[in-house]
């Protein structure tokens, strides 16, 4: 098992539990939505760059994925 994969996995679990705790303790507001979606973006990028090895890919794929993700998140938050 590679150390970076293990650290990434630990981070993902911490972020997932944090997201759930935040949503349970705060009432629905714009800040909550931005916070939850922000944490989801982090998880999404960790899975794609670390688990899927996108970090090794050509910049075209990295930029394209960030662009698509950005557009979806922007549409949800705004």
């Amino acid at each position: 098992m590679k150390k970076t994969l293990f650290i990434t996995y630990g981070l993902l679990i911490v972020l997932t539990v944090s997201t759930a705790l935040i949503s349970n303790t705060m009432s629905v507001s714009r800040i909550l939505i931005i916070l939850i979606m922000g944490l989801s973006v982090l998880k999404f990028l960790l899975v794609s760059f670390e688990f899927m090895d996108l970090k090794k890919a050509h910049s075209f794929w990295k930029v394209s994925l960030i662009l698509v993700l950005g557009l979806i998140i922007l549409g949800i938050v705004v």
Binding site: S23, L32, I36, S40, F51, I76
Partner: peptide
């Protein structure tokens, strides 16, 4: 991993933000 990525978008939007 694509299934993970899709779920990471579905979960907060369906279960948390409304």
């Amino acid at each position: 991993h694509m299934c993970d990525l899709i779920w990471l978008l579905l979960f907060p939007v369906l279960y948390l933000i409304f």
